[in-house]
Design a protein around this nucleic acid. Structure first.
Ligand SMILES: [Zn+2]
Ligand SMILES: [Zn+2]
Ligand SMILES: [Zn+2]
Ligand SMILES: [Zn+2]
Lengths: 131, 131
DNA sequence: TACAAAATGTTATATTATAACAATTTAACT
DNA sequence: AGTTAAATTGTTATAATATAACATTTTGTA
């Protein structure tokens, strides 16, 4: 478990304390006062943080959240729930699900080493608002 | 089952006959000879085609493929296998998987009405190349 | 200290996607 | 056929997301 570099730490801290997924340019804006001035500095840190599993990219939103699953140090099996109304994103930590998907074999014989799953719906809060 | 408009048909035909996912600007380039000149014309057709389930967006690639599953008219339960070497993408049609995921309930009580799953690995061809 | 790997800094540019507004076509209803 | 609303199209401009290329600095390690 390596330590984070300066830029990586700054950007991880920001994402980790955010209650919602952050987009790259929103991150850039927020860390400019800390000396990170260019998009590439942000993207490089994001790439590394994703690679080591400290954050995940929510592909459908082009946004990043801190890993909420302590055992998920390498991002090879990720699942999220996304509220289509308030955009709240939660990482799903369900061993039944991860076992099922990790063991899944398609009929084409391809063996998978990674997956990403995104569920969409309405969170409890938003469901009750609409009823 | 509505008919497609002119632009929608042109763009669907292109995607449908492509052996690989197509990106929006690659589509634009390819349909310019047919009178579609602006990105927005492409994106609007793509949006509609996704909405009615004729094509799917591969989120991790920002690319689009025709639905390979005749029963998948509304894109609410999609799963794909993606080769990380040759980038071949296949839509997975597995009733066991779709049943499992459609019925999946998280402990937070959120009920999902849609999901997208992307598996990554090496296709048979690419596995044998490397061995 | 010397070396290699990783990280940083910087400018420019590529790629993906939407805003805003006007005009035209299509479909449904008198 | 005439009226109307919805969907689609056309067009220009711009926003948002992401990478290329190159030089320099820092870090870990022999
Ligand atoms: Zn995680
Ligand atoms: Zn919500
Ligand atoms: Zn499909
Ligand atoms: Zn392959």
């Amino acid at each position: 478990m390596q330590n984070l570099s300066k830029n990586q730490q700054i950007i991880f801290d920001l994402i980790d304390k955010s209650p919602e997924p952050l987009k790259a340019y929103s991150i850039l804006f927020n860390v400019q006062k800390r000396g990170i001035k260019a998009p590439l500095q942000v993207y490089r840190a994001l790439d590394k943080l994703v690679e080591i599993g400290k954050i995940h990219k929510i592909e459908s939103r082009n946004a990043f959240i801190a890993c909420q699953n302590s055992s998920c140090q390498i991002s090879k099996a990720t699942a999220f729930s996304i509220c289509e109304s308030c955009e709240k994103v939660t990482e799903i930590n369900n061993s039944n699900l991860s076992k099922y998907l990790t063991g899944f074999k398609d009929k084409n014989g391809m063996k998978y080493n990674k997956y990403n799953l995104e569920f969409f719906g309405l969170c409890k809060k938003c469901v009750s608002k609409k009823s």
